[in-house]
Design a binder for these strands. Sequence first.
DNA 1: TGCATAGCTGCGCACCCGTGCAGGTATTCA
DNA 2: TGAATACCTGCACGGGTGCGCAGCTATGCA
Lengths: 114, 114
Amino acid sequence: MHLVPADRADRRTIDGHRVCDAIAAIGDAERVRAWAGRFSLLADANRLALLLALHRTGPLAVSDLAVATGMNDPAVSQALRLLRAAGVVAGEKEGRVVRYRVVDADVRAVLDHC
Amino acid sequence: MHLVPADRADRRTIDGHRVCDAIAAIGDAERVRAWAGRFSLLADANRLALLLALHRTGPLAVSDLAVATGMNDPAVSQALRLLRAAGVVAGEKEGRVVRYRVVDADVRAVLDHC
DNA sequence: TGCATAGCTGCGCACCCGTGCAGGTATTCA
DNA sequence: TGAATACCTGCACGGGTGCGCAGCTATGCA
């Protein structure tokens, strides 16, 4: 198993075979980037509070989220915009109220942990 | 249940009771901050690769981590320093080699997901 | 039709963070 | 003892990002 890319094949290693195991453990770089992106969405206390509220109490309006988290409306909008662009939440418009909910299964699974 | 703090009790709400449910769902703000901090450690692709390698293949030396991830040594050291300060990883010195491993149970649980 | 409200957006500011480079410390071996 | 190596640290730079303010659009109700 020669999993070490050619551009770093000449570097010193302590346990050469464990390096290959590590590369296999890391897996696809694109997948790692995708997960890092997901985690970065959860890495902000305000966004995480929004997601926890949505995940555990179901669909909520923007204003209510603002009151529940102590943020002001534009900040909530901004956060939800990010989350919506990433496919983590989705909003349903009912009149002039938009209720959001968490739609990403992976994120829901992570949210169940905390 | 009047969970809404006094400083935002006068704000308009859509579903007043659901706001209280949401506040209860968010729970302790300190806990949310702690989890956001954890997630921010996983939010970088390089750090996440390091953690995946450590989690799935066991203790690894800094140099080997550098080769496996394609980072250079100072970057790995810096990342491990952050993770060590947060109590996520721990290093054991054997001669001039330091082998790191993941020691935070919560982080391990999250890493099992991806 | 006119007003109030729910939500969204642009702009600007400040702050944090990841990274490369250069240099320092500690351990091993000849 | 001196050289090589494994790892760590300080510093400066660039990029990304959260947030508040002001203003805009759209919907509902009188």
